[in-house]
């Protein structure tokens, strides 16, 4: 059914810390690895070794440059996957009922055996979180690793989305954003977590934590090259000093 649930009991989602992400793309790889063998159709690649390789990914890391009014520009790595929106426009446009949002945990999923591959949901998502698989011609998207998080056959510490489990910098966190006492909710409250494109009215569940402010007193550029000059010691050191003194 492609009408949205009024409310969901829980709001499972991710909190992504833009201060911590180092842009290593490990989450991209682990997501692809887990999901190509898990829920639904594999995530195919077209011409993987050809001139124009393309492939299906459920999570991608962009990198942005931000230039404050004063002070140096900084680079921010920016992982992006489905935000499991409360008002998910991708769900309501679906003509077949393949796209749906679960009322118990709020996860947005695609029932691939009903999907006709019309692509309308990918148009409706402002975040680019849905990709049509080039081989299976059905819509693929982040499932929040629905086949891990409830999976009692794997060790408890693995029952989180693959990206969260993999991130070597711990920039990704998973939890119930409906519960104000959960770790993720407290992190959001503490760090001023925000929504992407709030103006689109999608009410995303996933939140992003802003990069922490940088030190402001760096107007004098540090001369890093001088620090790398080798400093001679012993006889050579004496010679170096003496010659410098002579001029």
């Amino acid at each position: 059914m492609t009408t949205l649930p009024e409310t969901t009991d829980r709001k499972l989602g991710l909190v992504i810390d833009l201060d911590i992400c180092v842009g290593c793309h490990a989450c991209v790889v682990s997501c692809k690895e887990w999901n190509t063998g898990g829920y639904g159709a594999p995530l195919s690649d077209q011409q993987p070794y050809g001139d124009e390789p393309v492939g299906t990914f459920l999570n991608r890391v962009h990198t942005f440059e931000v230039k404050p009014e004063n002070g140096p520009a900084r680079v921010v790595h920016f992982p992006k996957s489905c935000l499991h929106c409360e008002d998910a426009p991708c769900v309501t446009v679906c003509p077949t009922g393949a796209s749906f949002k679960r009322s118990d945990d709020g996860i947005v999923l695609v029932n691939e055996s009903s999907c006709i591959g019309c692509g309308l949901c990918a148009w409706a998502c402002p975040y680019g979180a849905r990709e049509m698989d080039g081989a299976e011609k059905v819509m693929k998207k982040c499932t929040l690793c629905v086949d891990r998080i409830y999976n009692e056959n794997i060790p408890e510490e693995d029952r989180v989305p693959s990206c969260v489990r993999t991130c070597p910098a711990k920039a990704r966190h998973f939890g119930d954003l409906n519960d104000p006492q959960s770790d993720v909710s407290m992190m959001v409250a503490d760090r001023g977590g925000f929504d992407l494109m709030p103006e689109q009215g999608t009410k995303p569940v996933n939140k992003y934590l802003p990069p922490r402010p940088k030190q402001e007193d760096l107007d004098e550029p540090v001369n890093l090259a001088s620090l790398a000059e080798p400093k001679a010691t012993g006889f050579l050191g004496w010679l170096d000093d003496a010659l410098t003194r002579i001029g």
């Binding site: 990914f57 962009h62 931000v66 230039k67 680079v75 494109m197 709030p198």
Partner: peptide, 23 residues
């Protein structure tokens, strides 16, 4: 607004997520 980085300053893409194209 898409990245939420507007609070810090002017934002532009520095690197695409991949060197090729995508869907």
């Amino acid at each position: 607004s898409a990245t939420g980085l507007g609070k810090i300053g002017k934002t532009r893409l520095f690197e695409q997520p991949h060197t090729g194209s995508n869907y």
